[in-house]
Nucleic acid binder design. Sequence first.
RNA 1: AGCGAAUGGCGGGUGAUCGCCGGCGGGCAACCGUUGGAGGAAAGUCCGAACACCACAAGGCAGCAUGCCGCGUAGAACAUGCGGGGACCGGGGGCGAAAGUCCACGGUCACGGAAAGUGUCACAGAAAACAAACCGCCGGGGGCAACUCCGGUAAGGGUGAAAAGGCGAGGUAAAAGCUCACCGCUCGGGGCGUAAGCUCCGGGGCACGAAAAACCCCAUGCGGUGCAAGACAGAACAGGGAGUUGGGCCGCCUGCCCGUUGUCUCCCGGGUUAUCGUCGCACCGGCUGCAAGGCUGGCUCGGCCCUGGUCCCUUCGGGGGCUUGGGUCGUGAGAUAAAUGGUCAUCCGGCCGUGGCAACACGGCUCGACAAAAUUCGGCUUAUAGCCAUCCGCUAAUA
RNA 2: GGCGGAGUAGCCAAGUGGCUAAGGCACGGCCCUGCAAAGGCCGCAUCACCGGUUCGAUUCCGGUCUCCGCCU
Length: 126
Amino acid sequence: MPLTFPKSIRLHYSSEFLRVKTEGRAFGGRYFTLGVLKDREATRTGLITSKRVGIAVERNRVRRRLRELMRLSLPEWTPGVWVVAIARRAAVKASFTQLQGEWTHLARRAGILQKTGGETSQDRPS
RNA sequence: AGCGAAUGGCGGGUGAUCGCCGGCGGGCAACCGUUGGAGGAAAGUCCGAACACCACAAGGCAGCAUGCCGCGUAGAACAUGCGGGGACCGGGGGCGAAAGUCCACGGUCACGGAAAGUGUCACAGAAAACAAACCGCCGGGGGCAACUCCGGUAAGGGUGAAAAGGCGAGGUAAAAGCUCACCGCUCGGGGCGUAAGCUCCGGGGCACGAAAAACCCCAUGCGGUGCAAGACAGAACAGGGAGUUGGGCCGCCUGCCCGUUGUCUCCCGGGUUAUCGUCGCACCGGCUGCAAGGCUGGCUCGGCCCUGGUCCCUUCGGGGGCUUGGGUCGUGAGAUAAAUGGUCAUCCGGCCGUGGCAACACGGCUCGACAAAAUUCGGCUUAUAGCCAUCCGCUAAUA
RNA sequence: GGCGGAGUAGCCAAGUGGCUAAGGCACGGCCCUGCAAAGGCCGCAUCACCGGUUCGAUUCCGGUCUCCGCCU
C-alpha cells in the first residue's frame, strides 16, 4: 500500500468540520486535539491551524508536520473514520518526534489504529 | 589587526528516499510518465498605478493629500531616485588674549505663509503681545528722620520655555534706535545662477516673540469602490409581511440617468449549493521527438560587461546617474480548509564539552536569522543569525 | 484577501495641549462595632509601546504591537 495522501481524502467543507465537532468525540493533547467521528463510509481527515497557533510560517510548519505523520500512519487506520486535528500553540515548539509520539498516544486512545499493541509507525517502513 | 557606525550584497550547499500542488501527454478509470513549484522583504497595507464596475464620470461646495529648487524614471504615477540651496547639531582645523569668526567634513530636517484673519501661550512673574513698571535709577514737593506723594525712565535685578532687535560708542538728571558704526530685519537696484538662493550698493527705521504635527490662508492634485472588483454557464423553487415613496451617479447641492403593476431596506419562509462551479488568473513562436518533453529564438523583468551619447560632481587623477546599440548570465509559481514538505546522510558555518602551548582532533546541539505568495506591477516602512565588499571614526603595533 | 475602528487601575469607564488624570465596582489598610454588615478616611495608573512637533503630549503627527467589526 503506497503512502499517498491525496486531496480526495481531506475534509473540505465547513459543514463536514462542524459535523465532526458536534457528532464526534474529542481527545485533547498537549500539542493538538483530535476530533473523531466513526462509522463513516470513507476515511477522511482535516486539519485546523488557526491564527491563535502563530504566524503564517509557524502555522504552515505545524500543518505540514501533522499532515505528514497522518500520512505515515494511514495504512494502520481503522477504515471509515473522520479525523480532525486542531493544532495548539505549544505545537510550534514541538519536534516532529514529539508530535508523532502524541499522535500515536491519542490515536490509540481514540481507537483509530487497528494494531492495538503495535509498534509506533516509523517514518521509514521498508 | 581589533572594535564601532553607515551603505550595498548573499541569505547554507549536495545527495538519497517517501510525499503534496499546478501544467501537459497517455489511459474508460485506478494510475503512469514528464515538467514547473516562495521572498528580499512574499510582511505591514503606508503611497502610486494597471485592471474592473458604478452613467460617457458633469458643475460647485465640503473633504483629503502634497508643500525649498532643478532634473530624471520614454508604459505611467508616486510621499520614489540623483543633484543643488538653506537651517540646525556634532567633533575637527585656521585666525584671535578672549568673546568670536571662517573653513571643509559627517549627520539630521513634515523646509510654503505667523506684516489676511480668529484663537492659544498653564504656573511663576509688575508685565505674555495695540506692551507694561515689582525691586531699582533719576528729578521735584513734603518730613528732623525712617519714609511718603507726583513725574521721568527701562541700563541693571528678579520670574519664566520665551521679556519686545544684539553689541559697542555717543548722549542724558537718569535713560531710551534718541543718534551713530557693525550685525540682524526689510524695501529698491546691480551682478552671478535655469531656479531655490548667494553676493554687492543704496534707502528705511526698530515695527515684525513662539507655535500652522491650533483653526486657517495660498498653490497644486484628487469622482467613488475595490479581484470578496467584476463577467459567465447551468440547475432548483413559493412566496409572504413591514417600512420607504423613490433609487442610482457621491458626503451635500445643482444637474442628469433609471424607474414609478417598480426600486431600496429589514424580517419570516422556501430552493439551489455560488459560505465551495468556470473565467478574471499568469508570455509567444521555430526545429526535433510517437506524445508530454528536449533544444532554440523573441518578449517581460532583473543583474554584469563593452561602445557611443547626455547630465551632474570634481582635489582635474577621476567618480556617479540615465540611456541608443551590442554581448553575456539568469528569469516566467500560481493554491482556494488553501501546494512548494517530512526524514536521513554528508559538507560549510556557529555554540558547548573533553584533550592539547597551539594548529587541531573527538563527542554533543529540539544550532542555521527574519519571514512564506493569494489579481499584477513601481516605491516606502518595518523585521533580519551569520558572512562578504566599500567608506569613515577610535584604539594598538610596526616603519 | 480588502476596508474600517479601538487600546486610560483587576473590571466598567469620563476626560482634555498645563496644578495631584474624574467617578463607580472590586482589592488592601485604618476608624467605627462585643463581632460583622453598612458608613467614613486613605491607598492602588509608565494613559498599549517607540520616536517626533511643542516650554510642556494621555491629547497633535508618524511608526510598531494587540484586539474587535464589516465586505462574496
